[in-house]
Design a protein around this nucleic acid. Sequence first.
RNA 1: GCGGGUGUAGCUCAGUGGUAGAGCGUCACGUUGCCAACGUGAAUGUCGUCGGUUCAAAUCCGAUCACCCGCUCCA
Length: 581
Amino acid sequence: MPDIDPANKSMEEIVALCKRRGFVYPASEIYGGINGFWDYGPLGTALKNNIRDHWWKQTVECPPIGPDGEPVSIVGLDSSIIQNPKVWEASGHVGGFNDPMTMYKECKKLLRADHVWYVFYGNPDEIGKYGEDLTGQGVDVRSFFSDVFALEQLPPDERQRIINEDANLKQALGNTESLPFLIKKAVLAGSKEEAFEAAEFSSKQRKAIEKHGAKPLTTYPLMVPDRAWDDGGSLCPNCESRDSLTEPRQFNLMFESYAGAIQSAENKVYLRPETAQGIFLNYKNVVDTMRVKMPFGIAQVGKSFRNEVTPRNFIFRSREFEQMEMEWFCAPDDSPKWYDFWKHERMRWWESLGVSKSNLRFRDHDEDELAHYSKMCVDIEYKYPFTAPGYGELEGVAHRGCYDLTQHQTHSKQKMEYFDQERQVKGQKAGLSKDEINAQSKYIPNVIEPASGLTRGVLVLLTEAYTPDESRASKVYMKFKPKFAPIKAGVFPLVNKDGMPEVAQKLYMGLREKFACQLDAKQSIGKRYARMDEAGTPYCFTIDGETLTGGTVTVRDRDSQSQERINIDKVEAFLDEKMGE
RNA sequence: GCGGGUGUAGCUCAGUGGUAGAGCGUCACGUUGCCAACGUGAAUGUCGUCGGUUCAAAUCCGAUCACCCGCUCCA
């Protein structure tokens, strides 16, 4: 029984085999490579295409049966990588996710600046020198903090009254994502405990603050995310050194380019960081032209681009990668049912690729790590050699609510509402009022998004297939499920004479019309088997003396290395059957 | 971004200042009777790149790039 635990597989050896056998090459290698990019060789391309085709077939052409016993309906799409830049403003990718990073000079710990809280010691005049638009909402920081500190002196009831009357404060408090909201809520609360409650700090944030709180602070420490000042009273949660933060650096996570020959701010465009937005952009087109009705899905496979801070771990995190995403549109009140359905459906799908159950798991996201768009999210994780005994993300199934369509409705001024006629009819039959019927049948759909990394899928199948075996000549073989193997069969004359090559040639010519296969008469039979083991070819057909007299060939099984004889006329049917399994 | 490590033939690696090496693989020819058999022969390198020191650099120094490990990030 081969060892299937990725913890015992060496990433380095997998990378070496990938190069040696033409699965994955370093990109632009002859120029010294380029950080974060990889090229897929002939076998890697075949493997990737096999996974992609299977996903497309199982998602678009032959989708599963839904939880109600009805077949689900999903259509395909191939949207442009470059879209109107407003798309990324609406989606929140511009602005919201250019995470600034900051580092403690003392201990070299790197942090996301918005995960750092800065502690002020309470003198509004001091703070005044940072007078700038801290809030991003046109609120001058000097007067803002003066206001806040003035408020702090007042009894809670009085504070609340003033906030209610102050349009500026109200506005700041209106946006729950905004910085002033957190600050003000924290400051205006009556105690530290209350501040935590009021500011709705997550457990993680709380912990960081608690650590600061161990130091002598004023009664109401101000936790200001998103900004660093060299003299701003910061305290490293790691080494507890004071005031040693560097200026936050802007990390631009989207690739930029210019549409048109002249580079200027007006024609700046972005390479998409996810395929999903292309689907949302065409949601209306699909509804209007494809006779789809709720619930339904739109699927897309394609390249995406992210300027990862640290591309690492082979093709696991590269800056150019490929996604297989499906956006499932449904009525809001049906969304938990579909979230649950797709969560389990996607896990089944990965298992159907031959990935061991023991190497896969679900991981539900904590509330405080959810993305801006997401209500619920679960990752399907795989135990990669470089994460083992831990796991790393392979696919995310996110409940995106109506976030994206609402955003696009707001930004584009195009109606994204769906009128659900089935619900209308149902309402009429139930004798509901017109208003009630409208309320139930008019809605912006909710979206469940199973988004998997195709290139991560390649990595998983490579890892999963990689099987060291000291007992065989190649010392290792790639145990792909036959359906996904880049080469399905080898055809070998046992020796290159006595009419065997001619028979092998004939068999090969027939098979190649249907299967990716290779004819090989060179060198010893053992070498040929060994080569096929490393390429992961599941079956090898060998023409020997008996073929010439009895019309049978041997089939050599990659995994067991055992042989059986079958009639040469049955080879195609044999492969057909094995590929279907 | 930081710290550590590595970089020599397709792969694995030896080579600590004096002519660029081995094993495996690849290719050709011969052989072959089911698991990298054997014989003969062949191709393959700006020693990651750039610069410096030196009569002389794969080797010493500096910079840079890529990969690996750890930290960190990953919408």
